[in-house]
């Protein structure tokens, strides 16, 4: 295993892969997780890049380099949650310059108009959840992870994860009773 220096100064490796190889292979996966949690395409470039930059700094702490995909996914979830919180803070301080949301554009081209509208309603409701609760719900119901996998991605215990998921679901039930 070629470890990156702890200061992250440079070496473009991610465990057994070069940074470029890892990026080309896993960037779409990281983007999918980030997009589903954050819901904003315009933040995606930064988010994916941040994940890989963070990954190169912390790769030395990864015990099993072959688990790089899961490692990147955990960083992606953490980064997405951080971005959600920061966005919320910026909005609260009126520092968010571009707050336009177009959640219908989250849908793939083959989605029906009704499905687009439903996706937009769900994500608008998700905007009102705490960032960690939102991530918990998205990982389970949009990303399709099992409870155990989702808990691992959220870097928390299963019971903590379930608590977050329950909170999120209860809130969404209130906002979207028929969804």
């Amino acid at each position: 295993m070629r470890d990156a220096p702890a200061d992250g100064s440079g070496e473009s490796t991610l465990g057994p892969l070069s940074l470029e190889e890892a990026y080309r292979r896993f960037a779409p996966y990281v983007a999918a997780i980030g997009m589903r949690i954050v819901g904003r395409s315009e933040e995606l470039d930064d988010l994916v890049q941040d994940v890989f930059v963070e990954a190169t700094r912390g790769i030395a702490s990864l015990a099993a380099p072959e688990a790089i995909k899961g490692w990147l996914a955990r960083i992606a979830v953490r980064t997405a949650v951080r971005r959600l919180r920061r966005g919320r803070l910026f909005r609260a301080l009126h520092l968010q310059l571009d707050d336009a949301r177009d959640y219908e554009s989250l849908a793939s081209p083959d989605a029906t108009p009704e499905q687009r509208a439903l996706i937009a309603r769900i994500y608008t409701a998700l905007d009102r959840l705490a960032a960690k609760d939102r991530a918990a719900w998205v990982l389970r119901h949009v990303q399709g992870e099992t409870l155990e996998q989702a808990a691992e991605l959220c870097a928390c215990s299963l019971s903590t994860y379930q608590r977050r998921l329950r909170r999120a679901s209860a809130q969404l039930d209130k906002e979207l009773p028929h969804a």
Binding site: Y23, A31, M35, L44, A107, D110, I119, I122
Partner: peptide, 17 residues
Amino acid sequence: TKEALAHVQAPWDAART
């Protein structure tokens, strides 16, 4: 809802990578 959420995707392609 599940069917709709299955359509959530990231606009990411090789060029963006």
